[in-house]
């Protein structure tokens, strides 16, 4: 289990990375935290000809508030996010997500940008980013553009990120008033990828009528899946247990078409989605009332 040879670059600026990407494109892989890429290379399932290590680009490591938004550099490590008070203040859903990601030894290396760009359907951060309506800054040698999370995740390990582009920054809007959140997942063991997970934002007005619901599921499709029917079951309605049940039922039967694998059948995933969404909505609702 040793990786195949590759050409290695460790540039110190984004511009150098973009120039290398322009040159090598499809042959190159970006090495961020490496916590998914390196195991895949050790199994020789990935054999990139060129590896561009972006761990030495200092200005990709930051967490700051900008115009009321959370801005995070793509190389920010999971542990930094987990411990950041800026994150917990502006995007507490992200803080709640972090401990579910693997183990501290992995979170010490893993990065937010790497996780988003990798787009593993079982991974936590893509779902949470989608729930938070984050935007991603994609830079290439010729331009930089911002892409909504909802436009970013395309299919299994497929994203809007082009071969010559680098994900450099993540912007997360702060939560509006009376908006609650919850992250829940069920994994076989502590730190495993989830059998099913949900990331939820729920806003209610003073009458507890749902004014916003953004419900995202992981491990139930080819990427993070937005529960549109479940949202419809809630929007403009009272955030009652009955309506949450209806939303959960709609999510399980209409929004997702989960795969079966050795850890869980499609039916079990539907069942768990229902169970988790109910719990998550309840938690989010309680928080929304106080927020």
């Amino acid at each position: 289990m040793k990786p195949a040879p590759f050409k290695y670059f460790a540039p110190s600026t984004v511009d150098e990375v973009l120039a290398l990407l322009a040159e090598h494109g499809f042959d190159a892989k970006i090495l961020a935290g490496g916590q998914s890429l390196i195991p895949t290379m050790n199994f020789r399932l990935a054999q990139p000809a060129v590896l561009i290590d972006i761990n030495r680009i200092e200005n990709l490591f930051f967490v700051r508030e900008e115009a009321g938004e959370l801005r995070v550099g793509a190389m920010t490590r999971h542990r930094t996010l987990e411990r950041s008070s800026t994150v917990s203040r502006l995007a507490p859903l992200l803080t709640e997500t972090m401990p579910n990601i693997a183990h501290p030894q992995i979170r010490n290396r893993g990065t937010i940008g790497g996780s988003i760009a990798h787009a593993d359907p079982a991974a936590e951060l893509p779902a949470t980013m989608l729930a938070l309506r984050a935007r991603f800054k994609l830079a290439s040698a010729s331009e930089a553009r911002w892409v909504e999370a909802s436009d970013f995740f395309i299919d299994l390990f497929m994203t809007e990120l082009q071969p010559e582009e680098l994900l450099t920054e993540i912007a997360v809007p702060a939560l509006p008033k009376r908006t609650g959140f919850a992250f829940k997942e069920i994994a076989r063991r502590h730190g495993d990828y989830a059998l099913v997970g949900v990331a939820v934002l729920l806003a209610v007005d003073e009458e507890n009528i749902c004014t916003d619901a953004n419900l995202v599921f992981m491990s139930v499709g080819n990427g993070p899946v937005v529960g549109e029917q479940a949202q419809q079951a809630l929007l403009g309605k009272k955030a009652s247990a009955e309506n949450m049940d209806l939303a959960a039922a709609a999510a399980a039967s209409e929004d997702i078409d989960p795969p079966s694998d050795m850890h869980a059948s499609s039916d079990f995933r539907r069942h768990l989605t229902k169970v988790l969404l109910k719990e998550a909505l309840q938690t989010a609702f309680e928080r929304a009332q106080k927020a």
Partner: peptide, 10 residues
């Protein structure tokens, strides 16, 4: 950190 998930050059 896992030393099997880092290259020595890093």
């Amino acid at each position: 950190v896992r030393s099997c998930l880092m290259f020595a050059v890093q």
